[in-house]
Amino acid sequence: MILSLDPELMQVLLLSLEVSGLAICIAVVLGIPSGVFLGLRRFPGRNLLITLVNTGMGLPPVVVGLVVFLFLARSGPFGNLNLLYTPSAMIIAQIIIALPIVMGVTMAGIQNLDEKLRLQILALGASKLQYFWKLIEEGRLIVLSALAAGFGSIISEVGAVMMVGGNIKGQTRVLTTAIVLETRQGNYSLAIALGIILFLIALLLNLVFTFLQQRRSS
């Protein structure tokens, strides 16, 4: 089934990659700079924000799904956007799951960089923006870890996408929701095939991250 590139299976796979890929891209673009900022700057309310990020890192996806569902539901504040049960809703939910993870890992990593290294960058005349950018460059391993942790959490997540996407065949069905459905319906071979694909994606990505990490640190 995998080898024959079954069109239904391919569609599920591509949607999974599309939704989680887009969600992680947005989470990284928002989460890395804000993680760096949170790691370096002292401002009122910082501790509260850090607590929120840490809580967010352990937030059950199904709760995120519920909140997004309530916001996007027809009677909710954003009901008129008609986003519920669309891939956009799934992307929104996954961004909310991945963002605190990306921010939290980045923040911890940046705080672990040698304080003198930070002073050294400033002492060579870096502007604020150049300083932030250089820290991200120096912490490439951290950025990779944040990316890996964030993507890993959303590609394998089922609760939120199920709630806000609805698992509609051909529209919002992704690998995880398909596995749940096929298992329930007794289509074990399809469920196993989907499971193997999900496992292979995770394996492949981690191989790439591990390779990049080890190359940098060796």
Binding site: D114, Q120, L124, G125, S127, K134, E137
Partner: peptide, 18 residues
């Protein structure tokens, strides 16, 4: 920045960049 950029500093640890 223009004043900061007239000055440069090196530490005891060479702190190499990537």
């Amino acid at each position: 920045l223009v004043v900061r950029r007239s000055i440069s500093m090196t530490f005891q640890d060479p702190l190499p960049f990537e």
